[in-house]
Design a protein around this nucleic acid. Sequence first.
DNA 1: GATTAGGCTTCG
Length: 796
Amino acid sequence: MPLLTLKDSDGAFEAQLPGSLRRLRLGDLHPSMDSAGRYFLGHVLLNFPTTILGNGQMLFKAVLAEPVTGTSPPKTSAINTVFFGAVAEECGMFIRQGDLLAITGFKCSESPSASKDGRHPFQMELQEENAPTVYVYVKAQTTTFMLTEPSVPKPGYAYTPLSKLQVGTIVNVFAVVKHFKAPFRTKGTDYCSAVTIVDPSDVKLTCNIFNGNCDALPKISKIGDIVRFHRLKIQEYKTEKQGTPGAGFSSVTFDGTVGAAVMPRTSSKSFSFSYEDSTTVTALRRWASAHLPPPPSPVTLSTVQPMAYFDLTCQLVGKAEVDCCTFLLKVWDGTKCLHPHTKVRVETGALVGDEGFIYKLRNLTVDVLVFDNHARTAESLMVGCFIRINSLHVKSQTSNISEEVETPCLDFLLHGGTGYGRGITILPESNSDVLELQRTLDLKLLDLDDHMNIEEAPSCGLDGTAMEPTHKELVPMSKDPVSLPSVSLPRCQQSSATVITAHHHMNTTSLKDIQNMKAPQKYRIRAQLMEFEPQRINESIKLYCSNCQSLQDVPDEEELDMILQNRAATAVKPGLLNLALCRSSTVKRENQDGSPVVLYFLKCGRWETPQDRLLMIEGGTMQEIYQLSEKFHSVVPVTTEGKHLSFPDFSAPFLIQGKRCYYGCRRCSSLKSIQDRYVLTEKDSLDPDVISRALGIVLLQCVLVMKLTFNDGTDLLDAYLWDTSEQFFHISAAEVLSNDAVREKLQGIMKKLCPPEAKLEDHPWLECCIKSYNVKDEINSTICYQIFDTVVVEDA
DNA sequence: GATTAGGCTTCG
């Protein structure tokens, strides 16, 4: 094995190397030199994807930089390092930017690209025949940055004031963001973010930062943020200096607010962060607060002025395509726009989002029309996400100002182009503005619930066609009244096993009265639970698509094994692999006469240990998949199709994490090819949302669906419980399937709500909000009922 | 390791 890892917990890197080895410096390298007994020490500045040469040999290239001890780096500190064959395969999978390596057993040759890349005139080459060894220094703690790292040779970064920049140099800078553009796709291959920065030397510099991965761009969220750029190349454009990423460019961003925590934001997994950096951030914050104009105070929908441009931080409630170059975004920020504003009409069915929620917020949302390049961004936004719309135009529809007859109607427009930073940014949930917004929205929602009354019940209801089959299946049949249960205590004195979370002003309606009323309506009821379906608790969990509203059963392990067996039987040639994407290994099973199991290890991710790696598997039973998912973070079942990997179908989960299975919607998903090497590694995230989005899969949500039969002594009523947000039971539907303890907890609750052995009169009383809605088919129209805004009392 | 864009508001 040419690759050896040494842990930082075991001491300093060089102290762990074999004592006989002596260190070679960059100046010692020469084609005539013998590297036996010697090693070269360097940080990985850059690494390129592993490729296959014309002769079928694998090649991995990295640029190494000798750790610098002085204050400023020498001119040529970087050297190209080329790994061949098996060495390339192994090192290419493991080595990443920022790693510290010690290399032995290499040859030196002339670098064919030295004149172009300005690096060392020679390059290092590692071939298996020379028995090379690559020692990698592994940090035990990789998730967070380290404040001090005394045992690792750390490059001493020097920062150039913006007034001292020279064209043609590569520098490190620390400065305040004066202006920025949210990342946008260029006409080339990359995303770009334009950032203008200033520092206490009172000079500004515009930088165009490019990267093929949008997430790798500086994580700037607002003007006043502080950025640290390493290896920024200074160019000249129209007599002005300009910054652009130099080789190995990296960026770290900090909040610019005086007194805020100094938390670095970056997508780099490995980056330095020292005590000095922290004091620089503090100093820059103080300088900016005293010398720069204060950042514009945030505008909300309630404070918006006509004919203005502003940045809006908001939540996306709904979206719809208007035409090829226009998209509608329905957003809210918890405040009410005081001016009349345009409501955009879209074709029925075009609006994506929760109908009920859109209706509930109808007086608080504004319709934003986004054009051209932004329409494409808008299309990919997930309803519910938090966004910042930069340079949103509030346009008054009254063209002639002299005609001030009425209050003007406002249009919210995001014009095409990126001028003035126009754009849409998805804000992470950890963003401080989002946390504040979330609080505002939560309070507003509570407020809304309190003021919502029966007259406000939506007329649209939940009578979507896609839900019909389920509801028809479960449509209440028995409506014969039964004898009144004898109750020993007055009802008002009995505690409830469930309570309502809103609508307390509503009076209780008897089930008999409800049966005589038209839908849709909202009611408050007090009744006992007579029975519920399904009795087998696992069957109450369904897979729901929020996009097409379809509902389906979750296959059990037996069904899944059948599906997997059929797949294996119809597979043409298992094990055909795409080398550029991953490494495969075939696992033989002693007790099996059937097809082999092939495992594919993804090469291009940054995941290093099995616990944070994604594995693809071809063949295998569900039990085997679960076994693997205990060791690997994520398991994706695949099949081979021609020369590439593909997804079999949607009958089985497309992703397994631990005991949790994730399914895709066969109707709404449009699969992207795994052929694209970036597909699975987008953002290097193993989040099911990110993976499913990257694969073009619309993720199905686990929901808990039950039919509850109530009896209040006046009549019986069947109501559906549709618990999508863990509200009713405080239980995650998905966990009912994957966690035995959670399933038992749910069974326990149901036992208490509806004790199987007890007489109905001894069942606990429940207080519930229910709403009625119409379910229509070609011939009939039935009224169904659904429970809402009700929760089980803990320890019911 | 080329290229992209290169803040200084719009068709709507």
